[in-house]
Design a binder for these strands. Structure first.
Lengths: 209, 209, 209, 209
DNA sequence: GATGAATGAGATTTCATTCAT
DNA sequence: CATGAATGAAATCTCATTCAT
């Protein structure tokens, strides 16, 4: 319950200063993403992550002193990706039509999915400390809410926040399409785009609260 | 000399034959729901389920010969609940306005949630054999699609199926509200109702494919 | 280590007096032979023996209060078979040539094998209390020694006993042939007959000690 | 990104890479021989083998990832002993009289016995995979047959093979003598030597098939 | 710093045996 | 007496984590 440091984990003093160390950490994180994605948090083993990253188990623990700390680091990195992505989207939103914004949301999730659908596994399952989880959720929500405030002029901050929650949940469905047959997948995706558009349009209609 | 089937003695995984046994099974399933919900499939332990149901570990294994078989049984029971609930809803749908149907969906998920939000954990995670999972998903989809075909006159079966997928995904969000603060929870719920109404309305507008 | 009673096990007072009880016991013993033979002593389970004999596990334990007691009873019954067989052979030995006696030994083991090769499993493995085991060995040895004394006139009792030990060991090989291919099996059997004949002949040659 | 084979870290069942590891493996194998010999394959427990070798259970499983793998390793090592012993004997057989060869057989088994009479338990019982078992049996048979071909000039290969089977079976009796009283043991041993001599002599007499 | 052997708590599962019904 | 549910010790095996080399 007591989370120590929110940094990617700096074992005895600091992050790896040497080039070699940074490569090692990168390899571990990559392997971590792979294994967590394939097996889920519980079934993934530190030994396999070590092996797959070409690292001795002892070395792995030097950089990430616990399984949870590795998951946290991975999640944090993912959260940064998302945060940056949303910030970028927020800048472009002024130049877009409402429908384009809707599509942008779907495309954004699609990109995330192909990059790291593993995060869902970590967040949904036990993985990631409670702190980390909440932080990640907050990043998502406020990022999306920001965009909504720009895309839907006149919307109240509260409404934007609530819409963000609902929108995020809906967008999660995009990820689930990965398991469908291609034909079905395409149809679901199109339908989701439509729903998001409709949602944004209706919000514009009623505006405020 | 070797009789295969009709022997007495219930070696493993058989159904209880005495009253007491049925009570025990009920207790185990209840504890199973609890523990799976709290910890997720992997982190849940048979030992804890046994303890929490006041059952010796051996007795637990008499009725459910493996962790997976318990998860399957739980999922199956839940699937029945859902199936019956959807069937019931399908009968009433003729007498309802479109908006009432939207609300009914949300309410339905709300009821399920309070009863057993654990199923999502089992379905999403490792738990439940693949067969069981697919079967459950299919039950959900066709049940919801049936209702949609009645609620949205003129909709094509294919469109109904795709809408069902998207709608289910959206409704899953209702369950997530359980972790929110009450005030936020209420707002999210209202927003979701609105979204579902909007979705149904838009479907009626364009109708067919 | 403390063996209680050397009888087939008389639970609360006496052996089953009713016809039904005797049938039940017979069924259990038959199933016991089967399962012990198929799985070996350790891997055999009382539950399976009960099931295969159409007996409730509780009833099985009424007649045989432990797994070991069942194994003992089976072994005892087998020992009786052997004892009687040897005794019968001893009576006929006077009328046979030495070569016929050798063949009779091999044939005798052959018959036992097809009847219950399970005994070896029980004796070799953990099964059967030490007492039971020693008793069985003694029955074999003195039975065979008796025959030798009749078949080889002038042999000393001590020599007969030692020969019995060696002969029994050699004859055990007959049982192992069960796993060979038919062609090989026949050859081995013939070779064994030859060896036993040679052995008896050589004993006659040197006679006494 | 996924490197399959040449990664460091020895997950399971790997050979020790440090000196200490090799000592540990030796200790485990020694304890394995002891416990398997005393209890038989099924009744032997990994926990006891670990304890008796002063090894933590986890360490035991590091080197031998399953009970069967330990039994296999033990059997393989024993098979090597036997193979080498037989090969050595084969080289010396040219310089020996037939009677000396017979004695050599008995002595050979005697040596094996004092070293590891456990193998019989493993081979006869469940232990060791079927492959391993058959391989071991074949090693024995062809090794003995080789010697016979040299010791009994003019014998046909087929006859040598069959004789080997019978001879091995007979020699197994030598091991059983371990349980006898010393006096009896000596007599049985002498008798067996005599039988083996007689057997070889008779084979020389009839020669070929 | 890197390495990998060592550790041991803990998870799943089995089965002989008992005893209330 | 028959029945079968209940019991729990014990077995096999896993894996996060530590620490001597």
């Amino acid at each position: 319950m007591i989370s120590r440091t929110p940094v990617p984990d700096a074992p005895r003093g600091s992050e790896p200063k040497r080039e070699k160390g940074r490569l090692r950490v990168a390899a571990i994180m990559e392997a971590g993403v792979q294994v967590f994605t394939e097996k889920g948090y519980d079934a993934a083993t530190m030994t396999e992550i070590a092996a797959r990253s070409g690292t001795a188990i002892g070395s792995l623990y030097r950089f990430f002193p616990s399984k949870e700390s590795l998951a946290d680091a991975l999640l944090l990195r993912y959260a940064l990706h998302v945060k940056n992505g949303l910030a970028e989207m927020a800048q472009q939103v002024a130049d877009l039509t409402r429908e384009s914004v809707a599509d942008a949301f779907v495309d954004f999730v699609l990109v995330l999915q192909s990059q790291r659908s593993f995060a869902i596994a970590l967040v949904d399952a036990r993985g990631g400390s409670v702190d980390e989880r909440l932080r990640f959720r907050e990043v998502m929500r406020s990022g999306v809410a920001d965009i909504l405030r720009k895309a839907v002029p006149g919307i109240s901050p509260a409404k934007a926040k609530v819409m963000a929650v609902v929108l995020i949940q809906t967008l999660k469905g995009v990820i689930s399409t990965a398991n469908e047959e291609p034909a079905m997948q395409a149809m679901i995706l199109a339908e989701m785009r439509e729903l998001v558009r409709t949602y944004l349009a209706s919000a514009s209609g009623q505006k405020g609260k």
